[in-house]
């Protein structure tokens, strides 16, 4: 379980997060919504080690998350995605997905040179994981193509396959549906659902309200860095503060 309490952070005097507290359960997708500038991405950066918040605590299954380097968090199964994807543009799709398997593989130079039986077994497992992830996302035909040659929708799929290959315990998704068409959104929602069903705690930052409402069992609404509402999608939809701050006429 992810437990965030009293998280606060300022960028040069501007309060990006204040007193943010919530919980997210394993096997569930917890949605974080709010208008642009509400602090959603800052929250995600704090939880994944990119920003060290001024105050507060965040634990995952009892382990402290704050103040750890992204690399160390990744090793423990905390995986984030990026709004701008951060794919390896010149590398093949297979090598992109293989990056996801990095946290469960050793990668010393000596191991590379000796290439003993343990390393070869690890390479086989890596190939199987890459193939499996590509099958889940339906991109097996693209494995040899450089990521830079793909369409935007395909690139998003590669990113999700990479996250899948990492077998995350805590998955932090930063606007995964942005720029996708309806069909791609449905496929994406299906994959996120499956990853939660596999036992991951999923935190979903997303502007697509339909997707959030259908996927999430719990919502946290941020506005000006504060939690203004939280609860089930139905409760949040009825909350007048949310209606005023964010959902507006759409609710």
């Amino acid at each position: 379980m992810l437990e965030v309490s009293g998280l606060a952070h300022s960028f040069g005097g501007v309060r990006a997060l204040q007193e943010v507290s919530f919980r997210a359960q394993p096997g569930e997708v917890t949605g974080v919504i709010g208008p642009n500038g509400a602090g959603k991405s800052t929250l995600l950066s704090c939880l994944s080690g990119w920003v060290k918040p001024d105050l507060g605590a965040a634990t995952f299954n009892g382990d402290q998350l704050l103040g750890q380097a992204p690399t160390d968090l990744a090793a423990r199964g905390v995986i984030r995605t990026f709004q701008n994807l951060e794919l390896l543009e010149e590398s093949s799709v297979a090598e992109n997905i293989a990056l996801g398997t990095r946290r469960t593989a050793s990668a010393g130079l000596l191991a590379a040179i000796v290439r003993g039986s343990a390393v070869r077994a690890q390479e086989r497992r890596q190939r199987d994981t890459v193939t499996g992830a590509a099958e889940r996302l339906g991109i097996t035909t693209l494995l040899d193509v450089p990521a830079g040659e793909l369409s935007y929708g395909q690139r998003k799929q590669v990113e999700m396959a990479r996250a899948w290959a990492a077998m995350p315990q805590l998955l932090l998704l930063d606007e995964p549906a942005a720029g996708l068409d309806d069909r791609e959104r449905r496929a994406l929602a299906h994959v996120i659902r499956q990853m939660a069903d596999d036992g991951a705690t999923v935190l979903l930052i997303e502007h697509d309200i339909d997707m959030v409402m259908s996927l999430c069992s719990h919502l946290v609404v941020l506005d000006f860095g504060s939690v203004i509402s939280s609860g089930s999608p139905a409760d949040v939809r009825r909350d007048p503060r949310v209606v005023q701050a964010y959902l507006g006429g759409a609710a």
């Binding site: 992204p70 990744a74 390896l88 990056l99 990095r102 593989a105 990668a107 590379a112």
Partner: peptide, 26 residues
């Protein structure tokens, strides 16, 4: 052998996207 290994993959990941490399444990 070195470049086709996990180590070589890490190095290429670092070149192309230091954030992605770190985020996945490199």
């Amino acid at each position: 052998r070195i470049l086709s290994s996990r180590w070589g993959q890490d190095l290429r990941a670092y070149r192309q996207s230091p954030p992605a490399a770190s985020a996945y444990g490199v």
